[in-house]
Amino acid sequence: MVSLKEKLLSDFEGLKIDDREADRLFIDTQKEAVLSLLSYLKKAGYNHLAMVSCTDWIDEGKFELVYIVNAYLSGDQVFGKKEKKCIVIRTKISRQSARFMTVMEIFENAEPYEREMHEMFGIDFEGHPRLTPLMLERDYKIPPFRKDFDTLNYVNNTFGKIPSIEQRKEGLK
C-alpha cells in the first residue's frame, strides 16, 4: 500500500513534507497549491477542518497561513494504521499585500476563522461573503495580532490618556 506521503509527493509539485512526528504530517507548500491540496485531502478522507491559523513572521516579511485538517473517525475505527491523524498545511504569503483565497467552498466552517484572521491580521480573503468585524469594537491602525502592534503602548495612549473624574473637575474649575 502506498502511503499518503508518497501519493502527495507524486501528485503535487514542490511540497516539503515532514512526517517525523507521530500522528502529525506537516506540509509546506506554495500558496497556489493550497486549495487543490485541501480538496485532495478531503477526498482522501480528511473531512474535518480543525482550524485556520496564522503566524506573523515579521523578520521575513511573511504571514504563514496554517490549515489543520483531520478525519472524522468514529470510536475505535482505524483509518489505516500507517496514516497520520492530523495534517498541518503551512503556506507563506506576502506581508505587504496580504491577500489569499477563501477555502469556504471546500470547508464551510472556515468562515469565522477567516473572518477573525481578517480582523486580527488584516488579511483579505477573496470570495469570502462577509469580512465584517467579528470581535473588535474599536478601530486599530495596525491589526492587533501583528507583531508590530505594541499593546502596552496602545493601552497607555488610549485608556491611560483618559482623565479620572476628579481630574476633569479640576480642569474645568
Binding site: 480543525a50 482550524m51 491559523s53 503566524t55 489543520i68 464551510e108 476563522y113
Partner: peptide, 15 residues
C-alpha cells in the same frame, strides 16, 4: 511566538 486555541464553542457558537 504564537498561540492559537481552537475551541469547540467557536464552531458551535458561530457556525
Amino acid at each position: 511566538y504564537r498561540v492559537h486555541f481552537n475551541t469547540p464553542s467557536y464552531n458551535h457558537g458561530l457556525t
